[in-house]
Design a protein around this nucleic acid. Structure first.
Lengths: 192, 192
DNA sequence: TCTTTTTTGAAACAAATGTTTCAGAATTAA
DNA sequence: TTAATTCTGAAACATTTGTTTCAAAAAAGA
């Protein structure tokens, strides 16, 4: 047998993710990445691959983190409508406190169609959020807390769209109250 | 006096805008731009300036187009709530029929803070849309068509956020019905 | 120990990047 | 027509880009 890989791949991906997350795909150079990862480019190409493959690994890492955070935070579901409210409030909170916006949204608008394997990762994440919301909405509808005539799929899409827009708003205005007010409005108008 | 500028600056900006709109700022090269504009880079630097200044001109051109389109389409306002409905439907229509998403949204997430003069253009456009929506909402509230207890500012932000999210959704799913369903839901829940 | 295999570091690669240079063409006013 | 001025085209600029090369170092099994 022979020499083993010296660097911690998990840690390197994390570092690379942070750079991509902040600067986007095109604006990030391989030097930026190898500096942050603290590895030589030959090691990078040997183990992970080229810039594109590294980005895929990074955004996959990002979505995995996000999904785990949700699954952890909402492990024991209470009343559906209450969980939904908490989810909306948490979204508002995350959006207004994290230093960068969402890596997936940034990538979506940067790639826009022409990059199937990156989009696949983003779509999988989007599906997860959609299912999570849809389940809550359906439960709430069954208990008469949300209008049962509306499609749970549509309401889930609708809420998710709102969150995306909040990211945009916060980048432009950096106004936490704007987001909190919208969150309040959304919550009030769900019960109806 | 001396020789005059030979190329049509308006037309050149339009062409450059189309490239930036599609590919984003960082992923667009000066060669891409001069090819599309059909001018030499020396002419570009002589008249408009560097890449950054060109982008500012382009996104200013984009927002001007957008604002003019709105002012034209809604020149004679009918019933406020009806105009609002039409606006929402038009948004859904534009989002699901244009080849690229919104240049401002793309730029917002690509630049994200560190580019004040680009952001200023985007903010001005955002303010315009906000005011336009807010006026309609206030009128509708005065006539009891929309809940008067809610802040018109918040509802305007809220609707605008929705539209942003629709762009994102359409990039990911290319599903027109998703957007139309959300538009229907939004319209139904405004009157309340 | 030695051999085998693989990783690493530094340097190099060609191509692409944003930008500048400058001679010559073009245009207007005198 | 001439003089003055400015634009244009092609080439060149120095950096930066993503990626590769390869000798030397490292590690595990024989």
């Amino acid at each position: 047998m022979a020499r083993l890989v010296a660097f911690d791949e998990e840690r390197a991906i994390q570092k690379a993710m942070e750079v991509f997350w902040k600067k986007g795909y095109a604006a990030t150079s391989m030097r930026d990445l190898t500096d942050a990862m603290q590895i030589n480019s030959s090691s990078l190409y040997n183990t992970i691959g080229d810039k594109h493959q590294l980005f895929v690994r990074c955004i996959r890492h990002y979505t995995k983190m996000r999904i785990q955070a949700i699954e952890q935070r909402y492990a024991d579901l209470g009343s559906s409508i209450q969980v939904l409210e908490n989810f909306i409030k948490d979204a508002a909170d995350i959006i207004t406190t994290e230093p960068n916006s969402c890596m997936c949204i940034k990538a979506t608008f940067e790639i826009e169609g022409d990059n199937p394997d990156i989009q696949a990762v983003i779509n999988a994440y989007d599906d997860f959020t959609h299912q999570f919301l849809k389940n809550l909405i359906e439960h709430a509808q069954n208990q008469g807390e949300i209008d049962g005539n509306e499609s749970a799929d549509t309401i889930a899409d609708y809420l998710n769209s709102l969150f995306i827009g909040w990211y945009n708003s916060f980048v432009l205005h950096k106004n936490r109250n704007k987001i909190l007010n919208m969150a309040g409005f959304a919550i009030r108008h769900l019960r109806c």
